[in-house]
């Protein structure tokens, strides 16, 4: 099972979703943000070395915090030798030996996103309630549709507390479902989510009873039920 976590806009929480979903699914998380990673970095070889043909993807995976990660350690020499054409093979190699592969995609809509979406069995789209993020998510959705990659879920991330705990949340989700045509799931804004992430720990390991942790578990549960054709 290969899942691309995409969003279009930067800062909507793609890495947060990747980390928490990856942990819940016991997946390997591929940090595909080759230019500006915000994932915890390792000192060892990473995705750049894999894409440069220097090492097999399975050999570059390491444990960071409580998750398995193929990191984007872009301080590696020779990053320019990275070739996107190696990406699909590198990912299917991981898919053969891991429960699931999560591709934590960068922002934007360049060729790299096209390759990542095309490699994935399906995608999880991340947005925030704000209109610019939704507009970018909509463009990303269109590309996924063109490439024939289905969207399993749209994560409405960073929902303010006052909205999350009211009826407005349901209305927000209905609106976003109509816009982005995928089943929505709302995640409340919670400052501890970002704090735990810096160490590579999903919020579920630190605050398992929090609303965010429970929603991430629901998100994971939905992906587990998907049958790949």
């Amino acid at each position: 099972m290969i899942i691309a976590v995409v969003g279009g806009k930067g800062g909507v929480g793609k890495t947060t979703v990747s980390l928490n979903l990856g942990w819940a699914l016991d997946a390997v998380i591929v940090d595909a943000d080759l230019g500006a990673t915000d994932f915890p970095q390792s000192q060892g070889p990473g995705i750049h070395d894999v894409l440069a043909g220097r090492i097999k993807s399975t050999e570059a995976v390491e444990r960071i915090g409580s998750v398995d990660v193929l990191s984007a350690n872009y301080a590696t020499e020779g990053a320019r030798a990275a070739d996107l054409q190696r990406f699909p093979d590198a990912i299917s190699r991981l898919d053969r030996v891991h429960e699931a592969v999560i591709i934590d995609c960068p922002a934007g809509l360049a060729q790299d996103i096209g390759v990542f979406l095309d490699t994935a069995d399906f995608a999880v789209l991340v947005t925030t309630p704000k209109p610019p993020a939704r507009a970018d998510a909509s463009r990303t959705r269109e590309l996924a549709v063109e490439l024939g990659t289905p969207l399993s879920t749209v994560v409405v991330n960073k929902v303010p507390d006052e909205t999350y705990s009211s009826e407005a949340c349901e209305q927000l989700c209905t609106e976003i479902e109509a816009e982005l045509r995928a089943a929505p799931i709302a995640i409340p804004y919670q400052s501890s989510v970002a704090t735990t992430q810096a160490e590579g720990d999903p919020v579920s390991t630190v605050e398992p009873d929090s609303a965010a942790a429970q929603q991430f578990e629901t998100l994971a549960e939905r992906q587990r039920g998907i049958i790949i054709r």
Partner: peptide, 22 residues
Amino acid sequence: EMGNEQIIASLEEWSPPTDPST
């Protein structure tokens, strides 16, 4: 219908990040 390779080729070009060591 465009194939996926053509769709990807029509997107904004991607280049690997500049090598920090150089």
